[in-house]
Design a protein around this nucleic acid. Structure first.
Lengths: 233, 233
DNA sequence: ACAAAAGTGTTTGGAATACACCCATGC
DNA sequence: GCATGGGTGTATTCCAAACACTTTTGT
C-alpha cells in the first residue's frame, strides 16, 4: 500500500535536508565522520550524516539534531557551508540540501556513539572512500572552507581538547593546511596573537622534555571579536 | 474558492525561495536594488528581488531567473550568500530562502527595467529604507561578505564598466570598504598584482589631466586562479 | 592664471621567512 | 648515554603605511 500523502501544496516543493561534514583531529590526522548507508539509494556507500529538516526547526537546528542522533555529538562548533541544489543530486527526486560543517575534538568524542545503530566511522581526509550523492563535492567545499577559515579565525581550538601543547596545535594546522610549518615561526605567531593561556601543568610520562599545556582564552577572543579584530595565522 | 492543492507529500515541506542582493556602483556610491512590494505581507515595504524556486532549476538558476524577470539583468556575476531558515521569517508560513548576491555595473544597466512593472529603485547602502521579512539581516550579511571578499578576490571589476580609470577603481574600493585609501599605495598594490591592461585611450573633455583607461585582464586571472593563486588588496 | 584631478618615489617600521642548537626526560 | 621531542633567537627580505609635489587640461 502506498504511504499516505497528506501534506498538500498549490505548487510543488523540493524536499529540504541537511548534511554535515564533521571534522575531528586525533593528534595526527584530520578526519571526517561518515555513515554507511543501510538503504537504497547508494546502499552500502558512505555519506555524511544528515536528514530532513523539520517544520519547527531551522536548518542549523536540524543539522545539530542529526549530529546528535547519528553521531552522538552535542554542543559542537557548527557553521553553514553551502546549499546544494542540483536538480538530479538525489535519485529519489528533488532534494535540496543545506550543508554544514562541524568541528569536534576527537579525544572527548572518541568512538562514534550514534543512537541509531548505524555504522559510523572516522576516515582520514587522505583516505576518503567513494561517497554517496554529491557528497564528494560537499567534502571538497568543506576542505576549502576550513583551510581558508583557519587562517583568519581561531577555529582550530574546537578540534583540540581543552588543554593542549603547542606541538599539538601545530600538527593540527599542518593537517588542515596540508603543509609543513616552521616550529619557531609558528610559535612566534601564536604567541603574538596573545590568545593562549600557559598552564602550570606539563605533560607526564613522556620520553622527552615535557611540554607545557596551554588553553585557548575564549573570553579574550570574544572581547576582541566584539571590537572588530583580525586574526591571521 | 480555495486554490487547488494538488502537490502532496508524506511529510510537510518548507517552501523554497531565493532572494538576491544586487550591488551596483555609479562611480561614487555603492548601491543595492530594491523592489517595492505590491501585496501583503509587507505591502509597500522594500525588499530584495526574489521568488520561488522551480522544480527544474537549481537555486542559482532560480536567482538568475528572478534577476532577469524583476530587474532585467542578464549575465551578471552572482554567488551564493547564505541560506536563511528562521521558522518565522515569513508570516505566510514556513519559507526557507537561499540568498545570493550579484554585482552589476550601473553604467551598462542604468535604469531598473524589470519586465514585471514592479517599482524598483537603486538605494545607496548608506540610506537603506526599512526592509521586509529578514532582509535587513540578509543585507548585513551581504555587506560583510563583499567587504571580506574584495580583499582577496578581484570581484570589483564586475561593478565597473569594461574600461575604467584607476581613480574609479579606488573610489569603488573605498565605497565597498567604507574607508579612505592612499592613492599612491593603492596604485602600487593594484599594479603589482599585474591584472590590469593599460589602454591607449584616455579620458576626454575633462577639466584636468586626462586619466588613462584600464581593462581587467580576465584571461590572465583565470590562468592564475587555475594555478591556485592568491590576490590581496 | 587657476582649479581640479592625474600621476609619481622614498623612507620607515613591522611582519614573514629561513635557519640550528641545547634541554629535559624515560628507558 | 641515547633517543625523543621541547624549547628558543637572529639576520634578512618583503610588505605596509605614511607622506607632497609636479603635470596636464579646460575654462
Amino acid at each position: 500500500m502506498e504511504k499516505e500523502k497528506k501534506y498538500c501544496y498549490e505548487y510543488p516543493r523540493p524536499a529540504l535536508t541537511t548534511d554535515c561534514v564533521i571534522f575531528g583531529f586525533d593528534g595526527l590526522e584530520l578526519k571526517v565522520l561518515l555513515i554507511e548507508r543501510g538503504i537504497e539509494p547508494y546502499k552500502g556507500r558512505w555519506a555524511f550524516p544528515g536528514g530532513f529538516v523539520q517544520m519547527n526547526e531551522t536548518t542549523e537546528e536540524g543539522a545539530k539534531r542529526e549530529l546528535e542522533e547519528e553521531a552522538g555529538l552535542k554542543n559542537v562548533f557548527i557553521e553553514q557551508l553551502y546549499t546544494f541544489s542540483d536538480v538530479h543530486r538525489d535519485p529519489r527526486g528533488r532534494v535540496v540540501s543545506v550543508a554544514y560543517y562541524a568541528l569536534v575534538n576527537l579525544k572527548e568524542h572518541p568512538a562514534t556513539a550514534g543512537d541509531d545503530a548505524k555504522k559510523a566511522q572516522w576516515f582520514s581526509i587522505k583516505k576518503i572512500p567513494s561517497l554517496a550523492f554529491d557528497h564528494e563535492k560537499i567534502f571538497r567545499m568543506a576542505m576549502l572552507r576550513i583551510k581558508g577559515k583557519i587562517r583568519y579565525q581561531p577555529i582550530g581550538f574546537e578540534l583540540l581538547p581543552e588543554k593542549f601543547t603547542l606541538s599539538e596545535l601545530q600538527y593540527l594546522y599542518e593537517a588542515i593546511l596540508e603543509i609543513k610549518l616552521d616550529k619557531r615561526n609558528f610559535r612566534k605567531k601564536i604567541k603574538k596573537m596573545n590568545l593562549l593561556i600557559e598552564l602550570d601543568e606539563k605533560q607526564q610520562n613522556v620520553q622527552h622534555k615535557a611540554a607545557s599545556f596551554y588553553q585557548f582564552d575564549k573570553q579574550k577572543y570574544e572581547e576582541l571579536l566584539h571590537k572588530g579584530f583580525n586574526f591571521e595565522i
